[in-house]
């Protein structure tokens, strides 16, 4: 039962990162791929109708974490207090910028909101990357299973750590590049014309960069959390993730080259999902690792919800999943295919 809930949580987080990741990425690249206002609106039109739906997975993840592992949620939400609020504020500003930038056709208004939008996307990628880095590295959990993280301490990933150290910062950079590459790949699928051509070039450049960065991150993670890799190879899901990563890379490169746009997006999604699956399998069952003393770590087995709460939730969770999948199908069928440049000039999307 506990393994099922751990898998469900991982699945929801992967859905969020894969789906909203390309929104963040496309948003970051708005000025790189869009040289004119019309091209920049095209970028927004490509992701516009989908972003609220994608963020549902983050909300669902938080709720599911509370249902299944309440202690972990209590510890993490208090420990990352300020970082979570930054995440919320960035999400709010990003959403507002998306919605209102199209309302007034005034250069200053448009540019102002575009800048907010791009900056918020970068901040979100940094925050999500840092959060993932923190989960792998661990946090200074005390014997009560509590922690409070400062943003910066001494930038070293052991002992009295802060949210930012050389490891988490490099994960954040890695995530920025991944989101940007993923976003560019989706823009290739969703757009035509100059935006499309620029996206193709940016996507292949970024994916090459990722291969180099991936090697670096792997070495760093080995140094910071060696048991990540020993855990990974003992779990079937770890292998599944590694296969998805290894399979995704050639698919991305050949598809981008041959113009098979949808399969490039699928490869890119598989790459990200594979990395996260392998990571989640590698750290299992430790949900929050303590950098102070290993015995303080929060394990999934000791911190799952008590009683038959998990069984009851397992009945309700699929029901809401059916709704979510239904809506997913509807909205993707509705917005399938390329966005046309004429589609949007007046309305927000």
């Amino acid at each position: 039962m506990i393994e099922i809930w751990y898998a469900i949580l991982t699945f929801m987080l992967i859905m969020f990162v894969v789906l909203e990741g390309f929104d963040f990425g496309a948003g970051m690249l708005q000025y790189l791929v869009g040289k004119t206002e019309a091209e920049r609106r095209l970028v927004i039109a490509a992701i516009g109708p989908l972003w609220t739906w994608h963020e549902v997975w983050l909300v669902g993840f938080g709720g599911t974490l509370m249902v299944s592992f309440p202690n972990v949620m209590a510890s993490a939400f208090a420990g990352f207090y300020l970082a979570f609020f930054l995440l919320l504020w960035a999400l709010v500003l990003r959403g507002v910028a998306l919605e209102v930038s199209g309302q007034i056709a005034e250069p200053l208004w448009r540019t102002g909101w575009h800048v907010v939008f791009v900056a918020a996307n970068f901040l979100l990628a940094i925050l999500i990357g840092t959060a993932l880095g923190n989960i792998v590295r661990g946090v200074p959990l005390d014997a009560n299973g509590k922690f409070a993280l400062d943003f910066f301490t001494n930038f070293s990933p052991s002992g009295n750590v802060g949210i930012l150290d050389w490891y988490t910062v490099s994960v954040a950079v890695f995530v920025i590049v991944i989101f940007a590459a993923h976003g560019a790949t989706v823009l290739v699928l969703k757009t035509t014309g100059p935006v499309h051509d620029r996206s193709v070039r940016i996507a292949s450049l970024l994916w090459k960069t990722i291969l180099v960065l991936l090697a670096g991150i792997t070495l760093e993670s080995w140094h910071v959390r060696p048991e990540l890799f020993s855990g990974m190879i003992h779990q079937p899901f770890g292998w599944l993730g590694l296969v998805a990563v290894a399979g995704g890379v050639p698919v991305i490169f050949t598809s981008l080259k041959n113009g098979r746009e949808l399969s490039a997006v699928i490869g890119s999604g598989a790459f990200i999902a594979g990395l996260m699956t392998a990571g989640a399998a590698g750290v299992f069952p430790i949900m929050l690792h303590s950098t102070l003393a290993p015995e303080n770590s929060l394990s999934a087995y000791q911190n799952a919800a008590a009683g038959n709460g998990l069984v009851i939730a397992l009945v309700w969770w699929p029901l809401s999943l059916i709704f979510a999948v239904g809506y997913f199908t509807f909205i993707y069928r509705h917005y399938t295919g390329k966005v046309k440049p004429t589609e949007d000039m007046q309305t927000p999307y």
Binding site: A78, Y81, L82, F85, W89, K146, F147, A148
Partner: peptide, 16 residues
């Protein structure tokens, strides 16, 4: 009430 988040932090986010 959280025992690791201080009042000053809460005030900051409330103002935010």
């Amino acid at each position: 009430v959280s025992d690791v988040v201080g009042g000053g932090n809460v005030l900051f986010t409330l103002m935010g």
